[in-house]
Computed example of a mutant assay.
Amino acid sequence: MQRIGVLVGMQSEARLARNLYPTAIEASGATMRGAEIALQRLLDTGVDKIVSFGFAAGLDPLIKPGTILLPHTIYVNNKDYVPDLTLRSQLGAEKSQVKIGALLHSDTIITSCAEKEILFQQTGCVAVDMESGIVAQYCEEHQIPFAVLRVVCDSANRDLPPVASLALSNDGHLNISKIIGSLLGNPDQVFDLIKLGADAAIAYWQLNSFVHKMSAFRFG
């Protein structure tokens, strides 16, 4: 029987993942070191496959918030990593609403439309996140099949407010004190934060709906 581990960046993503995989889930806090520690914890529990799960930022200007992604390639430091075909199929890669393409890994949060446009032109990747590349490299090193299930949160034409780079603590929870401090120092970003929150709500709802539909699949 398969034992699939899930890596997320945020605890809110972990709550969604439990609807699909009720067992081994770890949060990275959207940091490289956090991801490495979380992946080792997953490996220590005896998982034999790993899924990178949660939100991503759109790079393709045609992709809207709420688009489900099951990428066929993860692009990390000029190298392609290929997710496991069977695991992608189990996750719903053949579903009509799923976007297939390449996903870019970034070590930092991509906050501006201009930077997203440059990355799209340079790589052709449809979206970017901060965990999937680490998962891909880790799984290749440890010879573990992996796949990525993500949803677009902020589109390619959405600039992120500065507070977005401070929002998470190392355990994947919201860092309320830093969020409040940033908003007090720059209250104008409240409007952009509200727009981002609306996009995030759409993404959360779409991923939640997709996960519930796919939970009918039996693994193992």
Rank of each mutant, 00 (worst) to 15 (best):
T45P: 10
T45K: 14
G46D: 14
G46N: 13
G46C: 12
V47W: 05
I50F: 07
I50P: 05
F53Q: 08
F53I: 09
G54E: 03
G54P: 02
G54C: 06
F55T: 08
F55G: 01
F55I: 04
A56C: 08
A57L: 07
L59Y: 05
L59P: 03
P61Y: 01
L62E: 13
I63R: 01
I63L: 15
K64A: 12
K64P: 00
P65L: 06
P65Y: 06
G66N: 04
G66D: 04
L70W: 00
L70Y: 00
P71C: 03
H72W: 08
I74M: 02
I74W: 00
Y75N: 05
V76G: 08
N77V: 13
N77T: 15
K79L: 10
K79Q: 15
Y81C: 04
D84Y: 06
L85W: 09
T86E: 14
T86K: 11
R88G: 07
Q90W: 11
G92Q: 02
G92R: 02
A93N: 01
E94M: 11
E94K: 12
E94H: 15
K95M: 13
S96L: 13
S96D: 13
Q97F: 08
Q97M: 12
Q97E: 15
Q97K: 08
Q97W: 07
V98M: 09
V98N: 07
K99W: 01
I100Q: 09
G101C: 05
G101L: 03
A102G: 14
A102P: 08
L103T: 02
D107R: 14
D107F: 10
D107Q: 15
T108K: 12
I109W: 00
I110H: 05
S112R: 11
C113S: 12
A114R: 14
A114K: 14
A114S: 14
A114C: 11
K116D: 05
I118W: 09
I118T: 15
L119W: 03
F120R: 07
F120C: 10
F120Q: 07
G124A: 08
C125R: 02
V126G: 02
V126T: 04
V126F: 03
A127K: 02
A127I: 04
V128S: 09
V128E: 06
M130S: 12
M130W: 01
M130I: 09
S132I: 02
